Amino acid sequence: MPSDLPHLCMLEALTAEGATWSDKQIKAELSRERATVLVVDHGAGPVGWAVGWAVPGELHVMNVAVHPDHRRRGHARALLTTLIELHRGAKSALLEVRVSNEPALSLYRAMGFQHVGLRRKYYQDGEDAALMTLQLEPGPAASAE
């Protein structure tokens, strides 16, 4: 997956709304032990990607991005669904999203995420982030506790 780095950097620049991850940050995620990195590739390179961190009892969704020309095709939902499935032992999923990003907010609400707070001036440009969580059904790994 390190070979995806240039494509992911280009994709991030196209999709991020004022809060682009740097090449260094993306490279770090590709090798971070607790990170799960998923990529949607249509043969000519990635058109979407997501990063989730496994923290005790929780999936922290760090980033979901889809190329503008490939939006509204189910890629973001598929990436999130796969992240959740891969972290079946987690009790909840957590994410932050720009309060102005209505398409993402709508998707997250449709998937069952609930708005639980606000992170004031979370982004570099001063925009607030909505804090959202999703309570997850305990998977087989969690039910043995």
Rank of each mutant, 00 (worst) to 15 (best):
L11G: 08
E12F: 15
A13R: 15
A13S: 14
L14Q: 15
A16L: 05
A16V: 02
E17D: 08
T20S: 11
W21K: 02
S22V: 01
K24R: 14
Q25P: 01
I26A: 04
A28Y: 10
E29V: 02
E29K: 09
E29G: 04
L30E: 07
L30V: 12
S31Q: 11
S31L: 11
R32C: 05
R32L: 03
R34F: 06
R34Q: 15
A35T: 06
T36E: 05
V37S: 00
L38S: 08
V39W: 01
D41L: 04
G43C: 13
P46A: 12
A50E: 01
V51K: 07
V51Q: 09
G52M: 07
V55T: 09
P56D: 05
E58W: 09
E58H: 11
E58N: 10
H60R: 12
H60C: 10
V64I: 06
A65T: 02
H67K: 13
D69W: 00
D69S: 15
R71L: 10
R71P: 01
R72T: 11
R72H: 13
G74W: 07
G74T: 04
G74R: 01
H75Y: 15
A76G: 10
A76M: 08
R77M: 02
A78K: 04
L79V: 01
T82L: 09
L83V: 03
L83W: 04
E85R: 06
H87T: 01
R88M: 07
G89D: 13
A90Y: 09
S92A: 14
L94Y: 15
L94Q: 11
L95Y: 01
E96N: 10
E96W: 08
E96L: 11
E96Y: 07
R98T: 02
R98F: 04
S100R: 14
N101K: 09
E102Y: 08
E102K: 12
P103G: 06
A104K: 04
L105Y: 01
S106K: 02
Y108R: 10
R109K: 14
R109F: 03
M111D: 10
F113I: 02
F113V: 06
Q114S: 00
G117T: 05
G117K: 00
G117D: 05
L118D: 04
L118Q: 11
R119T: 10
R119Y: 12
R119V: 06
K121W: 00
K121R: 13
Y123V: 06
